[in-house]
Amino acid sequence: MTSTALPTHTREIHLAARPDGAPVATDFALVERRLPELADGQILVRNTWMSVDPYMRGRMDDKESYMPAFELDAALDGSAVGEVIASRSADITVGATVSHFAGWREHAIVDAATVTPIDPELAAPQHFLSVIGTTGLTAYAALTDIAPVRPGDTVFVSAAAGAVGSVAGQIAKALGAKRVVGSAGGPAKTRKLLDEFGFDAAIDYRVGDLAGQLKAAAPDGVDVYLDSVGGEHLKIAIEALNQHGRVALVGAISGYNGATTQQAPDLYLAATKEATLRGMLVTSYFPLFGEYIGKAVGWLAEGTLRTTETVYDGLDQAPAAFFGVLTGANTGKMLVRLG
């Protein structure tokens, strides 16, 4: 089944050069290309929203990692949602809203078997890229399995005004944490942690003396730390850990551009505290999606879970959104709205 007046061309963001340190505009190119005909089992999606995520920086380097490196002079990819405007699949019909992994372009031809139909009546489509997408799942899995929160715990969250962190603080509360402390950059973000996301205390990493700020915010120590930053944040969190403390290693954005000034954590101190430091890849937790979405939709409905997004408009603004997510310009999830 197909619709009429289908587009013959689309625009994509290509990786034009591998960044040396922080990415710059010339590392990207906006390219128009002709759309091929659909093959059996394929669908054509008009993308409406795309996700912009810090982990993508690692894929721009030509090195082995848990995901393949982006190819030069080819479209980037990432999570997106959109409307199906043509279909050669009996399973996905025209008009359906789907999520998939062919973002960074205005239209995507994908195998129907690789997409996930979503219900826009359940939540706004862009929420499937954030609070009830892999962002929310990351926070949930980190705090229920990687570094489980127990009733009465004190929880510390870095990058707490970002996509994962802002959700994690609220989930920690829902799981019974007694005190939740977040780190963010600047007074506007720290105020948002307190006023909108329900954190009990907030520290501003731009002010300095992170160790002193954390000690004042968590005088009885830290039981659980969700780390999205690495470097000095991880170092001071280990110093503040209580015996048998738990750390979820979710990201290390402070080193994504090859920074060499990161402070090394004291792993011997972690050993003497009998601490657990465990990394996570959200892809390992996709089987948990159903459980998480069921809880998250309920939390959203009752106001236990609140979300916010930073939105750039137009595919041409995607590189700027990416620069922003690496420098902390976003509050909540960084998204690009495609028109």
Rank of each mutant, 00 (worst) to 15 (best):
V207D: 15
Y292K: 04
A168F: 06
G332F: 07
R34H: 15
M50V: 12
S284F: 07
P151K: 04
T8D: 07
H127N: 11
A102D: 11
A159K: 05
T48G: 06
T134H: 10
G82Y: 01
A275D: 00
V149E: 05
S65K: 06
S228D: 06
F197E: 04
E309V: 04
I92Y: 03
G82M: 02
S99H: 00
F286T: 13
T307P: 05
S183T: 06
D220K: 03
T8S: 11
F289G: 11
A177N: 12
F197T: 10
A211T: 10
A139V: 00
G339C: 05
K235Q: 14
M1A: 01
T134F: 10
V155D: 11
G230F: 14
A217N: 04
T327I: 03
S130E: 12
R306A: 15
P120C: 14
E239N: 05
L267C: 04
K178N: 13
P125C: 09
D227P: 13
K173V: 04
G230L: 13
G82E: 00
E232Y: 09
G133D: 07
A321K: 00
T4C: 08
E302D: 15
A264H: 14
D266W: 00
A271W: 12
L288H: 13
I85Y: 03
S87Q: 03
I171G: 00
L30G: 10
L175M: 12
G162D: 04
V167P: 00
H107T: 01
V167K: 00
T2I: 07
G314V: 03
A22F: 15
V311E: 02
M60Y: 01
L249C: 11
G21A: 13
I92H: 01
E12P: 01
M280S: 12
F289A: 15
S3E: 08
G255K: 06
L129E: 02
T331A: 09
T310E: 05
L335N: 06
A264P: 10
